[in-house]
Write a protein that binds this DNA or RNA. Structure first.
Lengths: 242, 242
DNA sequence: AAGTGGTCTAGACCACGTC
DNA sequence: ACGTGGTCTAGACCACTTT
């Protein structure tokens, strides 16, 4: 009879939105504790169980991290466990050494059609392009180009990149306050062209994985596009299907 | 002082195990409703909220599917939404037509070292090998070989495969009662050999995705190993990183 | 001992689907 | 009208960490 709620949204989702807003507004920074469930319940005037359910979802989204006895923390790419969350490449040998990002070049450009579409900016808008190589135990395994909206990364230079000794996302988070929440990859097989072959030290024509990634921050806003090639001679791309 | 529980397991997980046992025992079959939360609460002598939490996890694991107002159902590969849950290949054109599995051959063999290791059976144990092609709109895009422990799939023949007009997992579920819960894929780039080139109608040497998959049922028991090559000329492998 | 998240309960009420 | 899952509350107690 009376259609009460064509757009019904449960309380805990509204609380989730409020917490998300506070995060976007920088009220609590990555790595820090947020207030206890009880405090948030008082603040938002709901029961502790409702806050709990909101936080449950955000923990499932990898936005928050619960630690029993200590509190709930804002997820950070500086955390070793989160650091290579988006890298699915695994050595055949199974050794778990962290890869090292080696920046090669960094320049300003204008967004082309594809970059504009994927980054949801205007064609011709200023972007920053980074070219780099990822090395596992000295060996170059990945060669990418990374496209960033200049507006969000102003001041990023090759020097900045070279002076940073950890993952790129940890740099982006620390210096630009950007939190990467999720990403989408499109994978194809391609033959190494001359440039890729040189960078990865393989023969021209070697089959490589072509990986395109768009990375999103809060509210599904795209903030990074990268495309690269992966050498799968000594490594493979591992994917869990659930 | 008194270390009460070095292996503490909350009640709802114990309930989860009990429900899992009932599923493995075939008490409720894929596609069917299971008893209501209230009934299960009475049966296991816990509160409805505790059953709820157990079912929450199993729904997150894609083992059960909740339907508000109707009940909770055992997930089934006959369900159109689950049917191609493990297939990540998407046409560039974006059209969503279902692929068609075309079996080519099916024979008995003995497990080699690799098959035995991945399927957790004895080397030399009887297995069934299926060779098939996946077609999208008539075009062959995937060529696979599928390795199955004979014990679990006895009676599987080419005729059976050919007379089945849906996904393989839906056949395996319907005919052998096997429920695929999760899978793990290892992806590499390779050059098409003669056989692959013929099956996929591409030139020899064309870069292809090599995809190896091990699929697990309840209790992380491996029940299928497949390896195949994907043509990524008109399609790509889509992966969500979360 | 005090504070945090984690579990468990019981009861009320809402939204959805079926009869 | 009834039964199902979905939400929300309030309170008790457990497990883990810090003081």
């Amino acid at each position: 009879m009376s259609r009460v709620s064509p757009t019904f949204s449960p309380l805990y989702r509204q609380i989730k939105s409020l917490i998300l807003q506070a995060l976007e507004g920088g009220e609590w920074r990555p790595g820090q504790v947020i207030p206890s469930e009880q405090e948030l319940a008082v603040r938002f005037n709901v029961s502790q169980g409702t806050v709990r359910k909101a936080i449950d979802e955000m923990a499932a989204d990898n936005i928050l991290v619960r630690k029993q006895g200590k509190g709930t923390f804002v997820a950070s790419h500086n955390d070793p466990r989160q650091m290579f969350r988006f890298l699915r490449l695994v050595p055949e040998s199974g050794d778990l050494t962290h890869p090292k990002s080696v920046p090669i070049d960094c320049w300003r450009a204008k967004a082309g059609q594809e970059a504009a579409r994927l980054l949801a900016i205007e064609p011709g808008a200023p972007i920053i392009v980074v070219r780099r190589v990822l090395k596992f135990v000295q060996k170059p395994i990945v060669a990418d180009e990374i496209y960033l909206p200049e507006e969000l990364y102003s001041g990023l230079t090759l020097e900045v990149l070279q002076s940073w000794d950890s993952s790129l996302y940890s740099l982006f988070e620390t210096r630009y306050g950007l939190r990467m929440i999720r990403a989408q990859e499109r994978i194809r097989a391609v033959a190494a062209d001359r440039a890729a072959a040189e960078l990865l030290e393989v023969d021209e024509g070697t089959p490589l994985l072509s990986v395109e990634r768009v990375t999103y921050t809060y509210g599904d806003r795209p903030v990074e596009w990268r495309r690269g090639v992966y050498s799968t001679i000594d490594h493979f791309y591992l994917n869990e299907l659930t």
